[in-house]
């Protein structure tokens, strides 16, 4: 049975924990709104880009002259897994669910006799995968210094990946990130970026025949590297929103748990206080009776 003083200390410490988690929740809520706005305003570019690329890819895709980024190297022996996670923890299952998806995929590929290479973006993903896949790490991108995620960050990552591709280090690249659904749901997603895969064109564009200037191949060669950067940028923004969403609901839960704990501890505290008073009374009364 803990003493009254112990209980009191305990209650105080849980109360301050609750204050912290509450504050983190509110900060996450504010950041979530900003992250969502950023994700939203990047959407028109990504959509139009993909529409144009899908049209181009469909018309050039089959030919042998298509760029390597589109048709691949002709092999799929070496896979590069690009794992995008957060720089910070305390966001529920966000980081671990992305890491888990990457780990499962890596196991599956290794089971088929493929070589796996891992590029991590964000400290938490690297920490989570270090034990199982540490030997396959080929690089790490640190975004902890980045205050506001910009397209330039995506370009840097894309440049790194494209450099490795040109050097023939891998055949297929896949990015892992969490797609933002809403505050409670983030879906860990794997998306292949090299060779590029574009969604089928939706809408009415398919009927229009475009003049291409310069040639279709030249445009495609120019745009495919940008497509990698665009895909990474969208993934980073989705991840940013997912991270804040996950942190918000995790901290909401933590705040609620702390509240329940405080209630329980307070009841325990009051009971033991009453027990102490009763004990003292009994001692006084029995002392008086003895006289």
């Amino acid at each position: 049975m803990p003493s009254l003083k112990d209980l009191k200390n305990r209650i105080e410490s849980v109360k301050s924990t609750r204050k912290i988690t509450k504050a983190m929740q509110m900060v996450a809520a504010a950041k979530l709104r900003r992250a969502q706005e950023a994700a939203e305003s990047s959407r028109p570019y990504a959509q139009r880009f993909n529409t144009v690329m899908a049209g181009l890819a469909a018309s050039v895709g089959g030919s042998d002259s298509a760029p390597m980024l589109l048709r691949g190297t002709g092999k799929d022996d070496v896979h590069l897994l690009v794992v995008l996670t957060a720089e910070r923890g305390l966001c529920g299952g966000f980081n671990s669910s992305i890491a888990k998806l990457a780990r499962v995929k890596a196991e599956e590929l290794r089971g088929k006799g493929k070589t796996v290479k891992v590029l991590t973006v964000g400290k938490k993903g690297r920490d989570a995968l270090k034990r199982d896949l540490g030997e396959f790490f080929v690089g790490h991108v640190d975004l902890s210094e980045v205050k506001r995620l910009g397209y330039i960050n995506a370009q840097d990552i894309a440049r790194d990946i494209l450099g490795r591709f040109d050097a023939g280090e891998f055949d297929v690249a896949t990015i892992f990130f969490a797609e933002f659904q809403n505050v409670v749901t983030q879906i860990p997603t794997a998306q292949q970026i090299i060779p590029a895969a574009f969604d089928e064109v939706e809408g009415d564009d398919s009927g229009t025949l475009y003049d291409y200037e310069p040639s279709e191949e030249a445009i495609l060669a120019d745009l495919l590297p940008k497509g990698v950067a665009t895909a990474i940028f969208s993934a980073l923004l989705e991840n940013g929103a997912s991270e804040q969403g996950a942190r918000m609901s995790a901290m909401d839960n933590a705040t609620r748990n702390a509240g329940e704990m405080i209630d329980k501890l307070t009841i325990q505290f009051n009971r033991s206080r009453q027990a102490v008073i009763t004990n003292e009374l009994i001692e006084i009364i029995s002392g008086a009776e003895a006289l």
């Binding site: 475009y210 200037e213 030249a218 120019d222």
Partner: peptide, 17 residues
């Protein structure tokens, strides 16, 4: 990419870098 161009309404559908 191949030189400046001006597009006005009813331009032929074109994609250019």
């Amino acid at each position: 990419a191949d030189g400046d161009m001006t597009a006005m309404p009813d331009h032929a559908p074109t994609i250019t870098t």
